[in-house]
Design a protein around this nucleic acid. Structure first.
Length: 485
RNA sequence: GGCGCCGUACCCAAGUGGUAAGGGAGAGGUCUGCAAAACCUUUAUGCGGCGGUUCGAAUCCGCCCGGCGCCUCCA
């Protein structure tokens, strides 16, 4: 059973073979930090997070690099327009770096909430200006770039491989009249490696070509190659970046080094809102901070992983609501299982909970090995959920050891790999929470007393009151349980 | 105009040649003082339409219809 990855370069699923045995170098295009993250960011980074987690699960030592774009990303095409961060800084009347810092923090905050593990390295574009300049110089030396009026452009027609990722040719681009004619460029498809800065431009650096700032594409080439080498395993990003961003990255990187750049390109599909692409101009922008007001970040993560990363995902409150119930079911089972394990630990039990965990494991692995099919993996978890619930509702008492194996399984695949189950330690309470739970327990005990006297209306009054405070009561055969939610 | 993707039940969504996963919603039942949770049963002779290839097609090919994306910044 080998890992198959859909490679955008070949448009096929291919067996994954890293360049170096047991090690994986992976780069994913990070956010441009000029605003709060939205649900599109969530889909992208949750998807790649699971990919990294899975690669590690199957034993690879992964070096995961994800940049923070804090300069050079323009509002219009790659060669014209305003730097997005500078634009926002003028609106807010603060220094551009303050904008970048603010939204970098915001980004990490949201990603942490979603359970996205931090990349091993999160390089900032502004901190790698020298590396970018070096690549531009190399391209000029190689004859792949030319200086024009203080800016440097990549000479697209001279690179035969241009278009191999997106299936586009630069001739097509010429035909498509949407590209503005820039008199500094020799060919309309040529793109900026370095832009001359006007005096009022705040973010600018000295270069061999005068004061300026880097083009958008060059940072990813510089930072990926700096940390992962000139040829590395996986490069990921959003589908919308396939062209022109990734195509340009390949061109400038391969022309600078003379080596193939990336082995596997992975592109995740986009988020739509009510069936329409989400965009600022369309006014249907949904930030994560807004979503988190209504839904637990874990629900958002679960929602994302219930469709395949290469499918579009339509975002709506209704969809999240439906999925919320499903996740509750999963977590409820785990909660009941943990309670039962705790009971089993004090009793002396010998019955074996006979669940074919190896079977479940191989089903999850084959789902994940098939281009990271998380919806299928989750379906397997639901099958296990049903079997576990059935087991827990039986009269027979199973040994702590055999129940713990089931718990560990959930923890391993639902927790560590998919990240949709909170770690056991996170659910442990401390301080105020302890007091709160003691108080609830007191009421529950009181209600049990009242119920034994068949004082139903009083008993229901306690239950309804707790419900209003967000506590749900469940009367079971062997006692009353309660939970938040 | 060029490149590409998608259309599976009431909703979401897997399935890329062997006879339709999973979740939500609905219906019936078991348990229960009631509720909640859970379990069992049930809901697509059919996968946008029409042809073709094949012993066999949701899956491959062709045409058509419908929706969407990229080609300008976007995760």
């Amino acid at each position: 059973m080998t890992l198959q990855i859909h490679n955008t370069l070949t448009r096929r699923k291919e067996e994954f073979k890293p360049l170096h045995e047991g090690r994986v170098g992976m780069y994913v295009c990070g956010p441009t930090v000029y605003g709060h993250s939205h649900v599109g960011h969530a889909k992208s980074y949750v998807s790649f997070d699971v990919i990294v987690r899975y690669l590690r699960h199957v034993g690879y030592k992964v070096l995961y690099v994800q940049n923070i774009t804090d300069v050079g990303h323009l509002t219009d095409d790659a060669d014209e327009g305003e730097d997005k961060i500078e634009k926002q800084s003028r609106i807010d009347r603060v220094h551009p770096m303050q904008i970048a810092e603010l939204y970098t923090k915001s980004y990490f905050e949201d990603m942490d909430a979603l359970g996205v593990l931090r990349a091993d390295i999160s390089p900032r574009a502004s901190g790698h200006i020298l590396e970018q300049i070096e690549i531009v110089e190399q391209l000029i030396r190689n004859g792949h770039a030319y200086v024009s009026n203080g800016s440097v452009y990549f000479d697209v027609p001279r690179f035969a491989g241009y278009g191999k990722l997106s299936g586009r040719s630069f001739e097509d681009l010429e035909a498509g009249a949407r590209i503005q004619v820039n008199p500094e460029k020799r060919h309309p498809a040529d793109f900026a490696l370095w832009k001359k800065a006007e005096p009022e431009h705040m973010m600018q650096w000295s270069s061999p070509w005068g004061k300026g700032y880097p083009g958008w594409h060059i940072e990813c080439s510089a930072m990926s190659m700096k940390y992962l080498g000139e040829n590395f395993d996986i490069h990921g990003g959003g589908l919308e970046n396939q062209f022109p961003h990734h195509e340009c990255e390949i061109a400038q990187s391969e022309c600078a080094t003379g080596k193939p750049f990336v082995q596997y390109w992975i592109h995740n599909n986009m988020v739509t809102v009510n069936g329409q692409k989400m965009g600022k101009s369309l006014g249907n922008f949904v930030t994560l901070k807004d979503v988190f007001k209504k839904f637990d970040p874990l629900v958002v993560r679960f929602f994302i992983l219930q469709s395949h990363y290469r499918s579009t995902l339509d975002f709506s409150d209704e969809a999240l609501q439906a999925v919320n119930v499903g996740l509750e079911k999963l977590l409820n089972t785990l909660r009941n299982l943990r309670e039962e394990i705790a009971k089993a630990a004090v009793d002396n039990r010998s019955a074996e909970a006979a669940i074919d965990l190896e079977g479940y494991k191989s089903r999850i692995l084959s789902a994940m090995n098939d281009d990271f099919n998380t919806p299928q993996a989750i379906a397997v978890l639901f099958d296990l959920t049903r079997e576990t619930n059935a087991l827990l509702s039986l009269e027979s008492k199973f040994s702590a050891e055999s129940l713990r194996r089931i718990g560990d399984f959930f923890q391993e695949f639902g927790g560590r790999v998919l990240g949709i189950i909170p770690l056991e330690s996170a659910s442990l309470m401390a301080g105020d929470a302890k007091m709160e739970s003691d108080l609830v327990q007191l009421l529950v005990d009181l209600r049990t007393e009242v119920r034994s006297q068949k004082l139903w209306s009083l008993s229901d009054k306690i239950r309804d009151g707790l419900k209003k405070l967000g506590i749900t009561i469940e009367d079971k055969k062997d006692g009353t349980a309660w939970r938040k939610g």
